[in-house]
């Protein structure tokens, strides 16, 4: 029974992966373009450190900043955005969600496994870049730091998936969700630590930002591995991350319940 249940998702993973490979060059290019963004951030921060002459900002020196953004470059393609948004909103608007609902599997799990399979390439690139950063940056993460990083990496991925599902579901109310997608991308970039490490903000703002879900998509995993935040502080953020995961799961479930009743025959 369990094997046959798993076989469904394995089959879905397999065909989605094969489908993704037909877009091979596009996948490779988009992944590297996202990394390029982090490289630009590194250049900007080198300029800021050298222009201002400061040795460190809130205790973080230039080397740590570079390592931080090198890790961000590895995380960006994988964590910052879920392809689920476009797929879900397109399915809702065009009415092709019906083709998925006739299969004997939950629609949201179908989207999730499709997304995982299309992220496999990005994951492989992310791991390669992180290993390179650890080697070149002479990082020596101990078991706790490594475990904490993997934990936040998974939390970040799940938060990205849930945010993607919630934003995609908004297509039942809005004709076009592009504006919201762009806004959320900016939030991840600015207040999630994609452009400015959150520890660079004044302490009060830092505390407020760390109560939002966005730092878990970039800052928290990158800062944990690069040592920008200590293991104790990283550990203290776990309840916030888990609380957001639970809250977003509840919202996503409520959105799905609403969405199910609003689907019509030809799309919304």
């Amino acid at each position: 029974m369990l094997t046959s249940r798993f076989a469904k998702y394995r089959a879905l993973f397999r065909i989605s992966f094969k489908d993704m490979l037909t877009w091979g060059w596009e996948t490779v290019l988009s992944s590297f373009m996202l990394m390029l963004y982090a490289v630009i951030a590194i250049v900007v921060w080198i300029a800021i450190y050298s222009f201002t002459g400061v040795k460190s900002i809130n205790g973080v020196d230039l080397t740590s900043t570079i390592i931080y953004f090198a890790i961000i470059s590895a995380l960006m393609p994988f964590l910052t955005w879920s392809a689920m948004v476009n797929k879900l909103s397109d399915d809702i608007r065009s009415g092709s969600i019906g083709s998925s609902l006739i299969r004997p599997m939950p629609y949201y799990l179908k989207l999730f496994f499709e997304d995982i399979s299309s992220s496999v390439f990005n994951l492989a690139v992310s791991i390669a870049v992180i290993l390179l950063v650890i080697f070149l940056g002479r990082l020596t993460p101990d078991a706790y730091v490594s475990a904490m990083f993997i934990f936040y990496f998974i939390i970040g991925f799940l938060i990205a998936e849930l945010l993607g599902f919630i934003i995609g579901s908004l297509a039942i109310y809005l004709t076009d969700i592009y504006g919201i997608m762009v806004s959320v991308n900016w939030m991840i970039t600015i207040i999630g630590g994609g452009m400015i490490p959150i520890v660079f903000f004044p302490a009060f703002i830092e505390k407020v930002l760390l109560l939002t879900p966005f730092p878990f998509l970039a800052f928290v995993p990158a800062a944990t591995l690069s040592g920008v935040i200590g293991i104790g502080e990283a550990f203290s953020l776990a309840p916030v991350g888990l609380a957001w995961l639970a809250a977003l799961a509840v919202v996503a479930y409520a959105m799905w319940a609403k969405l199910k009743t609003r689907i019509n025959a030809v799309g919304i």
């Binding site: 076989a7 469904k8 394995r10 089959a11 065909i15 094969k18 037909t22 004997p104």
Partner: peptide, 19 residues
């Protein structure tokens, strides 16, 4: 049917989904 793949891939997918 998956647009970029041959129908045989969708057939095999259906085989596994429906056991």
């Amino acid at each position: 049917l998956y647009w970029n793949l041959p129908p045989i891939d969708t057939f095999e997918y259906v085989r596994d989904v429906y056991g």
